[in-house]
Every structure is written in structure tokens, then in C-alpha cells.
Simulated assay, not measured.
Amino acid sequence: MQEFMRELYQDRTGEPDTLAVIVAEKTRQDDAATDYFDSILLVVKEAGEKSWEIKHYEYDNMKTAMHIVSTSQVEEWLAHSSNRRAIDWLLNGRIIFDRNEYMKNFKEKMIVFPVEERQTRIGMEFSKLVRRFADGKSLYYEGHYLDAFNQIVHALHHLARLAVIERGYYPEVTVWQQVRQMEPEIHKLYSELVTGKEPLEKRLELLLLANEFELATKMRMGSAHLLSIMEEKDEAWSVDELKERVAFHDYSLDLSILLEYLVKRGLVDIKLEETKGRTINHRKYIVDTYKKKVASH
């Protein structure tokens, strides 16, 4: 097996744009972390024609998947938590090639988690938390308890990731294990929803109240990124201007509901501007600096 693996990655290490090669091996027969393959070879390149390429190999009944990824793809996965398995391979896989200590520096960055990047991730997770909670609440009051359950479970996942990021760590695949150590109260909420003995309707009712409290508790931290963007200018923002501004940060889809939540909580004010029709006004948004200052104390 080792010879087979070496034959696969040896040529890659000779290519000048290859920065690192990592291997992740399955730990048990049905290990989904490696997509049921015996091993994963992750080849990180400086650039390439494709940002992510996958090749499957087999030798003597042993299966290996090779993922060839660009550094920009790795950064995207990291920024958006869009491929946590790959991040797990990068963090916990065995390094067999490391040009100019790329992987060593990458892991150090994972430990440090720059403040600016952290604030962006918090904003993204908070907007998704607001959306999932609002959807779950609506479905609950409509009597669709199983659908509400699904939304609240997702809301709790975003709440868990928020708790991890708040403490300066990247959420890993085993996020609930992280949360159990960092914020056991949130872990308890999840456990009560999933394994509680009470009827589903009752569990949801209790969780909605707890979630409402957690949302209010995390509001100042969760909205800091959006509010800092809005403070870049003194004038009010149209929703489309804000949508374009936050599109890169991956929460433009949930922007409208997040703005309404902050309006209700008093951190954002409405400014009405006349249209040509006069009786109809454009609705624009501006940070209430005084209320924000009061909320921060």
C-alpha cells in the first residue's frame, strides 16, 4: 500500500507549484470521513487550471481518492465552512510533503484565527441562526412540528459554531464535542431537543424560548460585522447596496431578515426617502450609533 501511495504522490512533489501533500487514512471499515475510501491524498497547489480536481485509484483492492486543490479553494473552504471534511484532513492528516512550511503556517493560522476573519464568520453564522430560528418558529406556530424540528436543529448548529468561533477556534467536524467543553449549556439544549423524552411539541416550545434568549445574548457580537460595514458611511443604505457589500461574506441571502431583526432590537433605524410617487417611500437603513453605544455597555 505504501509503495502504491508513494507512486501516486511522488510526481506531484516534484512539481514547483505543489505546496503540500497530506494523507488521511480510514480508522474503521465504515469511516465516512474518508468517503469510504481506504485513504485520501490531498495535494495543495499554488494555482491550477481547476480549483479542485478529484481522481480515484485502486490497487490490490485498496481504494484511494486524490484531491488536488488550489490555495484559493482551501481559503474558501476555511472562510465559509463549506467542506469541513477537507479541513479535517488538512488539520489532522499526516503531512508527507511540506514546501516552505506551508502546512505548518496553515495550522498556525488555524490556531490564531485572525480577529477580522473571525468577526466575518460570526456575522455569517449569526445571520443563518436568525433565519433558521425564524423559520422554525413560524413552522412551529403553523403546527408543522417535524419541519420546525429540522429548522431548530440547524439553528442550534449555527449557535454552536458561533460559540466556538467566539472563543477564537475554527469549528471542526466534531463541533458538538468542542461545544460540550466550551459552552455546555448550548450542548444541553441540543441534547434535550434530540434525545428528550417529552412530546416533540413541548420540546420545541422550550427550545424556542431558550433560542430567543441565546439570540438576544449573541446579538451584539453577531451583528458587529454588519454594523461596522454600515458605519463606513454616514448616509443610510438601501438593501441592495448592503446586499452587494456583504455578498462576498456569504450572508446576503439572509440580509433582509437580519436587518429586520436588528430594526426590532433597535440597533438599526429606518430612514424613509420619497420616490417619484411621493406617497410611496424608499426604505433605507442606518445604524443608530447612540443605541449601539448603550447596547455595548
Rank of each mutant, 00 (worst) to 15 (best):
Y145R: 05
K104T: 11
R167E: 13
A148F: 05
I122Q: 02
H157T: 09
G123H: 11
V115N: 07
F106T: 06
L146V: 14
M103I: 00
R132S: 13
A148D: 07
F126M: 08
H158C: 05
H154F: 15
E166N: 11
E166K: 14
Y140M: 06
E166C: 04
P114N: 09
E166P: 05
E142L: 15
H158P: 00
M103V: 01
A148L: 08
Y102W: 13
N105E: 12
R132Q: 15
A148Q: 06
R131E: 12
L156I: 12
V164M: 04
E125S: 08
H158R: 10
I122P: 02
Y102T: 03
F106R: 07
K107A: 01
E116C: 00
T120A: 13
E117F: 06
G143Q: 00
I152K: 12
V153Q: 11
I111V: 10
E166D: 10
Y145K: 02
A160T: 04
S127L: 08
L139H: 10
G136V: 06
L162E: 02
Q119L: 13
F126I: 05
E116Q: 08
D147W: 09
A160R: 04
K107Q: 01
V130D: 14
M103G: 02
L139S: 12
L146P: 01
R121N: 08
H157V: 08
V115Y: 10
L159R: 01
F113E: 02
E125R: 08
E117Y: 06
V164N: 04
L162T: 05
A134N: 11
M110S: 09
V130Q: 09
S127K: 06
E166L: 04
A163Q: 07
A155F: 10
S138Q: 13
V153D: 14
K104R: 09
R131Y: 14
P114L: 12
L129A: 11
K109E: 06
P114T: 13
A155T: 05
R167Q: 15
Y102F: 15
F106Y: 09
H154P: 00
I152W: 13
L139N: 11
R121L: 07
H157F: 04
R161W: 05
I111Y: 01
R118N: 07
H157A: 10
K137G: 09
D135Q: 15
T120F: 03
D147I: 07
E108Y: 11
D135R: 14
D147E: 15
Y140F: 14
F149H: 09
L159K: 03
R132D: 13
H157M: 08
D135P: 00
M110I: 09
A155W: 08
R118E: 02
T120L: 12
A163S: 06
I152N: 11
F149E: 14
I122G: 02
E116H: 13
V153S: 12
D135E: 15
S138R: 14
H144M: 13
K137F: 09
K104S: 10
K137P: 02
L146K: 08
Y145T: 03
V153F: 12
A163Y: 01
L159N: 02
